[in-house]
Amino acid sequence: MRLWLLDLDDTLLVDHRVSQEVLGRLGEEAGVEGLFQAVGKKAEAFFREAPFYPWAERIGHSALEALWARYSTPGLEALGEWAWPFRERVFREALRELGGPEGLARELAEAFFRERRRYPLFPEVPAFLEALRAKGAILVLLTNGVPDLQREKLFGAGLGEAFALTLISGEVGLGKPDPRLFRMALCAFGVGPEEAVMVGDNPERDIKGALSVGVKAVWVDRGHRPKDPRYPAHLEVRDLREALALLGA
C-alpha cells in the first residue's frame, strides 16, 4: 500500500478518554458523580438546536468539541459568540440533573475549556508512523472538525510535520464519509484506490467513506465505539502496528 490515509481522534490521538478523565475529575471536585455522561447528553441535545448544526454535522464537529474549541478560525466568529452561553447552559443543566451546585456551571465550563487541552498519542503511534515512513509510504491525515481545534490537536501532539498532506473537513468543506474527500487525497498523489488504505476508529465515517471509493479499510477498536456490521473493514486491530501487515499488500 503506497498511500495511508489516517484519522486523528481516537486513532492516533487519545480523545474520548481525555474528555472522560477531565470531566470525571471536575465532577469529583464539584461533589457529583456521572458528570461526563450528563455533560455529553446535554451537550448533544443543545448542540442540535444550534443554527449551524447541519454544517457541524456535515464536517463532523462534535458537541463535546464545542465545549473547548476556540473558534479562532476566520469566519467562525459567530460560533465564538454562541459558544459560552451554550457551555454554561450545558454544565448548569448537567449539574441540575445530578443534584449538584448549579452555581458552579460557569466555573466548570471554564475549567473544562482550559484543562481539556491535552494531546496524548496512543503509545504505539511513533513506532507505527516511523515504520510506514521507512517503507516509503505516503502519509495523509483525514480529520473531521473545525480547523483551529484540529490543528491545535495536531501540533499539540507533535504531529504538525508528520503528513505529506493534511485534509481537515472544516477547511475543505467536506467531511468523512463523503467520498469526495477520499478522492481528493487519491488525486493529490495520483494513486489508485487499490494502492491506498484508510485507518480509523469510526465505522460510519472512516470505514464507510473508504469502502465507498474502493479503498481498503482498517478499523481501530479503541474500546468505546462499537463495530458496525454495515461497514465491514478489511482488517480490525486494537494496536496500529497490527495494520503494518498491509505494507506488502
Rank of each mutant, 00 (worst) to 15 (best):
W4A: 06
L13Y: 07
V14P: 00
E21L: 13
E21H: 13
R25V: 11
A30I: 10
F36V: 06
V39F: 07
K42H: 13
E44I: 06
A50R: 10
A50Y: 03
P51G: 08
P51Q: 09
Y53W: 15
A56H: 11
I59D: 02
E65G: 12
L67K: 06
W68F: 14
S72H: 11
L76H: 14
A78E: 15
G80R: 15
E81Q: 13
W82K: 09
W84K: 13
F91N: 01
L98V: 10
R106V: 06
R106N: 05
E107S: 13
E110W: 10
A111T: 02
A111M: 03
R117M: 08
R117N: 07
A127G: 12
K135P: 00
G136Q: 09
A137P: 03
L139T: 02
V140Q: 00
T143M: 03
T143Y: 00
N144H: 06
L149F: 13
L159W: 02
G160Y: 08
E161T: 12
A164Q: 15
T166M: 04
L167S: 02
I168E: 02
G173V: 11
P177H: 08
P179E: 11
L181R: 07
A185Y: 00
A185C: 11
A185Q: 04
L186H: 05
C187R: 15
A188G: 07
A188F: 06
F189W: 06
G192R: 15
P193I: 10
E195W: 01
M198E: 04
D201P: 03
R205F: 05
G209R: 02
G209P: 03
L211M: 09
S212M: 05
S212E: 15
A217Y: 01
R222I: 06
K227Q: 14
K227F: 14
K227E: 15
A233P: 14
A233G: 06
G248M: 12
